[in-house]
Design a protein around this nucleic acid. Structure first.
Lengths: 352, 352
DNA sequence: CTGAAAGCGCTTACAG
DNA sequence: CTGAAAGCGCTTACAG
């Protein structure tokens, strides 16, 4: 791992502030001021000399050194539970854009939904002196994360709540999502709903969706029957097939409601395998995916404003960092958008 | 942006090496050795004292400070042209995993296919003292990148070649991909091929695929007719529709060949809109996407070993960093895997 | 407006 | 085996 070969290129090493100072016949202090945002308080002549010297040496401040003394690293950390889901990619993209606009760089770490890996990454990130952290948690809060939050370190939670952490949280209004989904399915004429969720574990968004579903089912008892199935991504399709078959055999105007994009993918695969046509069996998924409009007759979804959620998460971080906002932690919930497609036009219903 | 509030928590500030040294009644040198990997050369007693003190203070070395003096940051940078494509996500995931296994952290920057933004990010990354750079280029090489490469800074190119940069390159064997695609389409009985590509710009992989296609078409003149259409992601579907309609009206056993996953998505959308059935018009895409198996009767694809490409890219970086490997830059090309599905079973052909 | 000096938290010859 | 000292490239009181 040693980058010894770099030392071979001593001559081409990056110029330092000291060299610029010498070249410009100025003090290090002045050069530091020039690049540190206090340029105006320097005389025009000094400014010019420094500018010239810097240009000649192709000087670029060493951010590492700057942060060591100054305390500011300009680094924001982000822990992502699963970087491969479209939701995470979009949220991350949002965070990154917002961060860059404010002069921050983002260090993203994929925790693979593994709390242990999350800890490793968290240690790394703090060791690099991040100034704030966006957490899309992979489980319960680690002690280290709790300590950080307790000490007032700027943290914002994304999509997932974390007991023990007092921090702003940005995500979907899960109650609204379930409410809209159920209302839509009922209107469309479905009578039996199979809810597919990844294992709840300690994922608050899954928890919230499930309990709101339970609430809604209770509210509509008699007109809407509910069933729930937990499916892990590592599970084979073979574990889902019999569940759906069983559901189909007993259900009246059946519909599947998918708790997230992963489940929608699983369900679509399974329905295809079982040769069940969309629509005759309803399908509605939380999370809009690029292929949902492609699958005839189209899969109805609840779209999240994913990039916006990411951007907002960063904005919260910034507010925490400024004196501007002091107070209770906030929960910022975005409303989903229902995108109606053919997968929820119940044929029986129209026939009636 | 100032994180002034952190200074409020002086008492909870992270412990420093100096504090550990005091607590352990040892020198800073010894503590540094303890955490710097020279633990063995310390007496058992000293080791124990340091271990205790560190544990008590919950000490974690400040990586920023370490790298300032030691030169090593443990940071690897990655420039990604478009972080939202599945290919990039998977490649990035591969790089990150390989990096972590070797104790490196990854800083990923999305350049949005914008050379200017790429420069900005490159400046940032080098200012943070990255020890190596994986580049999925967004255009031509910037002067800064050329300088880096010229100075022997470890760089590896991913998926895209960059004129002016002497560096290892890891990607798909594009010639093989086109050869396999064409051979498969011919075997399946298609006679007219419409090749869809994003604008070549300076993207070598697009370039290579296109020229190999041209070569193949020439080789099969008379038995296979070719057409090419360039489509930008920002283009509306409306610009593609007439092209496909025109193609269909004149073609004999027509098939569409998509240069990458984005094009496959565009084509699938367009075909759906035009109500053209897959298979009657052939469709073959480079890049496997999660929904290709879902769309009846399935879209035939050429899958890339995306994660492996990422992992390999990092491995190259590491080799560059060690004295082990010195020599000409290498081009590592992976073979694609043909995944046959219904979209390339030409009905006319079977009828014949 | 300008600069000399101390120091951020580490590592690394050098000396013993 | 152990430590005192110099220094990595910056910033920031402090003084003028």
């Amino acid at each position: 791992m040693p980058s010894d070969n770099q030392s071979t290129f001593v001559s081409s090493r990056r110029a330092t502030l000291r060299q610029v100072a010498q070249e410009a016949r100025a003090s290090k202090t002045s050069v530091s001021r020039y690049f540190g945002g206090a340029r105006e308080q320097l005389s025009p002549d000094l400014q010019k000399r420094i500018a010239q010297a810097a240009a000649q040496l192709n000087y670029r401040p060493n951010l590492i050194a700057r942060s060591l003394k100054g305390g500011r690293t300009g680094l924001i950390g982000m822990l992502v539970a699963d970087i491969r889901t479209p939701f995470s990619v979009a949220a991350m993209h949002g965070v990154e854009q917002a961060a860059r606009e404010q002069g921050f760089s983002l260090m993203v770490c994929n925790t693979n939904n593994d709390p242990l890996l999350e800890q490793v990454h968290l240690t790394q990130l703090t060791s690099y002196g991040i100034e704030g952290l966006v957490v899309n948690a992979s489980g319960q809060a680690s002690q280290e994360l709790i300590d950080l939050a307790t000490n007032g370190f700027p943290i914002v939670l994304l999509d997932r709540q974390l007991p023990g952490i007092e921090a702003d949280m940005v995500g979907l209004d899960n109650d609204a999502a379930i409410d809209i989904a159920i209302a839509h399915l009922r209107e469309a004429g479905y009578r039996d709903v199979l809810y597919l969720s990844e294992p709840i574990n300690h994922t608050s968004s899954r928890q919230e969706r499930l309990s709101r579903l339970t609430y809604q089912l209770a509210a509509h008892e008699g007109t809407l029957n509910g069933h729930t199935f937990m499916l892990s991504l590592s599970d084979d399709l073979a574990s889902l097939s019999p569940v759906i078959e069983q559901f189909m055999s007993t259900a009246n105007r059946p519909a599947i409601l998918c708790g997230n994009g992963n489940m929608t993918l699983m369900a679509a695969r399974c329905l295809k395998q079982l040769k069940l046509d969309l629509g005759s069996i309803g399908l509605l998924g939380i999370d809009e995916l690029e292929w949902c409009s492609l699958l005839t007759p189209g899969i109805t979804t609840l779209a999240q404003p994913t990039e916006e959620i990411g951007r907002r998460a960063f904005a919260c971080l910034l507010e925490r960092n400024r004196e501007a906002y002091v107070g209770q932690s906030r929960h910022i919930r975005y409303h989903p958008t229902l995108i109606k497609r053919g997968s929820t036009s119940c044929p029986d219903f129209h026939a009636t």
